[in-house]
Amino acid sequence: MKLKMLYSGLKTEIDIIERELETALNSSSHFLNEASLHLLKAGGKRIRPVFVLLAAKFGQYDIQRIKNVAVPLELIHMASLVHDDVIDDSDLRRGRPTVKAQFNNRIAMYDGDFIFARALDYMTNIETPQAHKVLSNTMVEICVGEIIQIEDKKIVDQTIRDYFRRIKRKTAVLISSSCELGAIAAGAPEDVTRRLSRFGYYVGMSFQIIDDILDFTATDKQLGKPAGSDLMQGNVTLPALYALEDPMIRPLIEQTINGPITEEQRQQLLKAIRKSSAIKRAGDLSDQYLAKALKEVERLPDNPVKKSLVDIALFMGKRKF
Rank of each mutant, 00 (worst) to 15 (best):
K154R: 15
D157I: 03
Y110M: 13
R169Y: 12
Q149G: 03
T159W: 09
V173A: 11
D88L: 06
T124V: 13
R169T: 09
M109R: 06
P97N: 04
K153G: 04
K57D: 02
R106C: 01
D113I: 11
G59Y: 07
F103D: 00
V140R: 13
I115M: 02
C179F: 07
L181Y: 08
T171F: 05
F51Q: 02
Y110I: 13
G145Q: 09
L120G: 12
I184P: 00
K170L: 06
L73R: 00
F114D: 00
P49R: 00
A131H: 02
T159V: 08
R118Y: 03
V144I: 14
F58A: 05
I76T: 04
Q158G: 10
T124S: 11
A172W: 07
K170N: 01
N68W: 12
D152S: 10
N105S: 13
E127C: 06
D121W: 12
I184K: 02
G95Y: 09
C143M: 14
C143G: 11
D84M: 08
L181I: 10
F164T: 03
D157Q: 14
A108P: 02
A172T: 08
V52N: 02
P49F: 05
D152I: 01
I142P: 01
R118P: 01
L54C: 08
H132W: 14
V86N: 07
A186F: 09
I87A: 08
L75W: 07
R48M: 01
V192E: 04
F164N: 10
Y163S: 04
K100Q: 14
V192R: 06
I167F: 06
V173T: 12
Q60R: 15
D85G: 07
L81G: 04
E127T: 15
T159S: 14
D84N: 08
E127M: 11
E190C: 00
K100A: 10
S136D: 10
S177E: 14
I184S: 01
I126D: 12
C179G: 06
V69R: 01
N125D: 14
N137K: 14
F103S: 01
P72L: 11
R48F: 02
D152K: 15
R48Q: 02
L81N: 03
G112F: 05
E190I: 14
L53D: 04
G59I: 06
M123E: 08
R166L: 11
R166W: 02
N137D: 15
E74A: 08
R96Q: 13
S176R: 04
L81W: 05
E190H: 09
L92N: 03
K100N: 15
I66W: 13
E127A: 12
V82Y: 05
S176E: 15
